[in-house]
Every structure is written in structure tokens, then in C-alpha cells.
Nucleic acid binder design. Structure first.
Length: 113
DNA sequence: ATATTGACTTGGC
DNA sequence: TGCCAAGCCAATA
């Protein structure tokens, strides 16, 4: 059911390693879709049922969970991140500690398909 | 074809 | 830290 139009976004999200987080804007840029952070959120909302997509590793530019505070989805994202070792302080993760940094080496030798 | 809606971002206080 | 106004733009209505 995941729409074909969000394929690039989904593939990019799959590369976020466990224990790390990426921002909506970062995913959009990496997917070749600059200025489309909101589209990433939309794509993830539709991927919630797809277990192969680690949507919980995507947070906003401030490192915070962008879901209604206290909602089921919010709690699920929080617990999944905590399980991976990401400390969540009042809905916020510390980007300085957990931000996913894509290096040139990753692009050339590890993320190749 | 026009208007509204977002799991967003940035910059300024 | 936090709030706000703008800017952004595909998808929906």
C-alpha cells in the first residue's frame, strides 16, 4: 500500500542506523527532495503499518518527536528509540549525541546498492 | 483552477 | 529554553 511516490523517502529512512536519529529535512535532502520535509512526514504517516521502515528514527530539526504528545504513536516512537539506546528527555533527543552523520565513506563503500 | 493542510524549518526575539 | 511569523510545497479538497 505504501505509495510508489514515496519510494525514495522510504529507502533513505531505511539507511538510518539503530541508535541514531535523522531529521525530516535531512531525509528529504538525502532523498533528493530539498524543501520537502513535510512530505517526509506524510510519507512516514502512511508507512506506520510497514514494519520494514524505521520511521521512529526520524525527528524534527530540534531533535523532538513530532507527534501529538502522549498519543499512542508518540509513546511508541519514544519507547522504540529508548530501546535502541537513544535518551529521550521530555520528547527531545540530543542531536549532538544521536544525529545520523552520513560520511563520504558511507556513500561510496557502505550504502551502495 | 483556487484553497487548505500538514509527523517541517529557519530566523528573530 | 520557548513562542511566533514566514517560507516552503506536494497532496487534498
Amino acid at each position: 500500500m505504501s505509495q510508489q511516490r514515496y519510494q525514495r523517502i522510504y529507502q533513505t529512512v531505511k539507511y538510518i542506523p539503530p541508535g541514531k536519529v535523522a531529521t525530516y529535512g535531512q531525509i528529504a535532502d538525502l532523498a533528493g527532495l530539498p524543501n520537502r520535509a513535510r512530505l517526509v512526514g506524510k510519507a512516514l504517516a502512511e508507512s506506520a503499518h510497514n514494519s520494514s521502515i524505521p520511521w521512529h528514527r526520524v525527528v524534527n530539526a530540534k531533535g523532538r518527536i513530532s507527534l501529538p504528545q502522549g498519543s499512542a504513536a508518540y509513546l511508541l516512537q519514544q519507547s522504540r528509540l529508548q530501546q535502541e539506546g537513544v535518551v529521550i528527555d521530555n520528547g527531545r533527543s540530543c542531536l549532538a549525541d544521536y544525529a545520523w552523520q552520513v560520511s563520504l565513506e558511507d556513500i561510496l563503500f557502505k550504502l551502495s546498492y
